[in-house]
Design a protein around this nucleic acid. Sequence first.
DNA 1: TTGAAAGCGGTACCAG
DNA 2: CTGGTACCGCTTTCAA
Lengths: 340, 340
Amino acid sequence: MTLHDVAREAGVSYATASRALNGSDRVVRAEYADRVKAAAQKLGYAPHLSAQAIARGSTSTVALVVSDVEDPYFSSIAAGVTEAAEATGLIVTMAVADRSPDLELQIVRTLRGQRPRAVLIAGSRIAGTDTRAALIEELMAYQAAGGRVVVISQDDLPFDTLAIDNRGGARSLAIALAERGYHRFAMLHAADAIRTSHDRRTGFTDGLREAGLTVDADRSIEVAFTREGGIEGVRELARRGLDDVEVIFAANDMMAIGAMTALRDAGRIPGTDIGVAGFDDIGSALDVSPALSTVRVPLREVGLQALQMALSGQEHGAVAVATQVVLRDSTPDRREITPA
Amino acid sequence: MTLHDVAREAGVSYATASRALNGSDRVVRAEYADRVKAAAQKLGYAPHLSAQAIARGSTSTVALVVSDVEDPYFSSIAAGVTEAAEATGLIVTMAVADRSPDLELQIVRTLRGQRPRAVLIAGSRIAGTDTRAALIEELMAYQAAGGRVVVISQDDLPFDTLAIDNRGGARSLAIALAERGYHRFAMLHAADAIRTSHDRRTGFTDGLREAGLTVDADRSIEVAFTREGGIEGVRELARRGLDDVEVIFAANDMMAIGAMTALRDAGRIPGTDIGVAGFDDIGSALDVSPALSTVRVPLREVGLQALQMALSGQEHGAVAVATQVVLRDSTPDRREITPA
DNA sequence: TTGAAAGCGGTACCAG
DNA sequence: CTGGTACCGCTTTCAA
């Protein structure tokens, strides 16, 4: 099952077999080429990618690090990456960092050994981690050896970055909601150490301020960046009094969806009694009812673009990814309900 | 950045450096070992996995083939596989077959070149494809060379299989729904060529029969195995008349969720006016309202188990994976509503 | 215990 | 165009 076997079976030299089977610029007489291919087919030969990698000095692999594959945010990015990779004939190696910076570092170390063409990191950046420096060092070493690094969503790492406009999107959402006649806001977000959450939180606050509005400190609740966090957040909100809340902004769709469920449990109808808006526009935003207002992040495209950037061979620095407000029935126009 | 450099830096031989860095049974004097490790650290050395693979004759990679990462069904399986892999120090290579048997075959071919320790296939088996034979041949060759193959959910391939009990689960669901007082059923399923759908369809019909019930031929609609399919199915159902339908069984949760949306569009309240049940118990089954009745498939565990089976070194044949009926508010007890 | 050297499966340069 | 062969980076005998 090695090239040797194929060559012998075909009655040609080792070198010729290699040329016939794998794209070489050298030309092989058609007759020989056919014989080799037939032999390979017959023997069920598959070139040893590791051997090729070592001989050629380069692999056909790209590494993708995500925080959690089950999270639609990351699985959409992964879908984009694999799509682009397969179109380019590349193999994707995927690792899950489980939102742990330590694991992430360890994973990058291992992955580096693969000598992938590129390392794409779609993580939930956690600020102020002491593994951060080590991660950067690792990535730098990889890059120095000719590897390409692309980071998704964190513009604070010294590598090419696809910077999702969390802040601007949240700001626009706040303004759009204000325009729909909402005045009294509540906000569910994660710890500021999670950059994404921080940016969305502050962006939203900025937008409100521009509209001449604010959100009370005790209506801004810090919870987990998950569906459960959304549930917990609404429960806490309920304890503090839900009656004067007109709309809840959750820092991501999963939280928003959890919040909707919790609202129902608390006897309020999302959209009708209290508006709910999220961020990301994951698939299920359309499945809940009422459909969730949110800020669309083109996740799949981000994945595609990340790989393209990595493969382009050029430095890109921080590339902004635009986000877009999508208003649905979870935040109906209040002006129709509450006449000025 | 090669072992050579490290050895030179540490002032020891190549072989010693190798022994010091990577688990060897041979013992290296502590002083040397430390020096080597320090040198490696200083130089940012990472062993070339391909080189190791070729020298050792085995890799630390497992390959996973799924139909679609964005689909929660597959992303959950992938999560289980990556979790198990990382716990074992293995790297996961993931490829997306996009529900195309041709692509799947091509992917397996490529992946085989990686010489992964195992190939796990979580595909939507499509019956009667002519690529099937080629796929089996490819997998057989891989297995003959010492590779391990585990197939998820398709018990019709001659490899170790995790056979999800689609038929039994659907049967139990039908019976459970009948017990809740439902009599008039509609069914949304995909083409029978998709085994999973076929098994769920026939299982459901079996269960109904046992309960002395049937589903009219014109209430059984073939659509795509997706959310859109669910929407389309309900639309068709509406054309044929929805009034005497008490509950809709969709062959998977995505379809069921689509169906709920379409029902709302048609002016019917899911759960209240017409019951809806799905299959899989994906995360969003809890997010829709009313919460979706379904049959739970332990997807994540399946992923974990698939890898464990593959790594165990034993032949397992077809291992059954139990499913479990989960009744929620989308199929309320009708007996409370409609007194006998 | 350590170092030298023979592979592992291929690629690509070099001479023919 | 073809065959011979020197590597690629690392592991693992085999001697010392």
